[in-house]
Amino acid sequence: MADSEEQLTRELQRELEQELERPLDDAELRRIKELVRAQIEKELHAKSRAAKEKPQEAEEYFVRFSMNFCLQHLVLAIGVILLTITGLPIKFHDSAWAEFIFRHIWSLEVNRIIHRVGASLLMLVSVWHIGWLMTHAGRRELRELLPRVKDFWDFIAHVKFMLGLSPERPKFGRYSYSEKFEYWALVWGTAVMVISGLMLWFHRIALAYFPKYIFDVALQAHSGEALLAILALVTWHMYHAHFNPDVFPMNMTIFTGKISKKRMMEEHPLEYEQLIALSPPAPLPSEGEGGGVRGVG
């Protein structure tokens, strides 16, 4: 640092002397030295701060989900959690824990209100999602999410890989068969829950237009589908999003929208290849704010 300071001072001195066509006096030299030191310190400070603020910036990542998509998931998650914690004690009202909840934590009346708040969030996000599917970005996601024959063969190949019958993991595109399966299970489940739930919520209207047995079927479907959905969430979803060793303890992609290049190459190699082929060579990550980001859209 001291070397560069001296070198810079000498250079400036020489330049100025050439320009002024006379040697600089002591006061002028001292001033140049001060200015150079201040400038170097400032630069060093800025560098260290940048390094402190964005240490992961060096790692290359991709934008997997848009902010809109992440928000949809967040609202859905809050809604489903509210529905689960208030729905289960009704389904298992005979159990000691349900009795404990209703007698000591919240009353059945409060339970009913929370359940309907959760239901409103679920319906809100459903309408939002359907609206979003009609936009350009949404239509492209829907195309990616449509089940294809390849998904079936991917599943078979993946099971073979797990059993050690095949050395290679199948290559997935933007959505693997397990993600597509979960998406469509969610679509089906939400449809059943919303339709049957609305009948139960507005039972006065429902009783005017539907026979009682339709109402009973709606109640039973609501109860059965709910348990199925909760079990799918605590097994399939928890495993893929939390407990599998690749992402443990939690896959943050759905909240930040970002996925690392490493995971992108492992989990969605076909999408990765497609993106690399389509986009111009990436600039170096150190060259700016968005340097490491490869937009998917």
């Binding site: 099971v159 797990m162 039973q220 059965g224 348990l227 079990l231 097994t235 495993y239």
Partner: peptide
């Protein structure tokens, strides 16, 4: 729903065990 829940949950659990075994 009873059978759907039994079949699907068994499938999920089996899949997870299998995946962990594979890893």
């Amino acid at each position: 729903y009873r059978w759907l829940i039994i079949v699907m949950t068994s499938f999920f659990v089996l899949y997870i065990v299998l995946d962990l075994y594979g890893r």
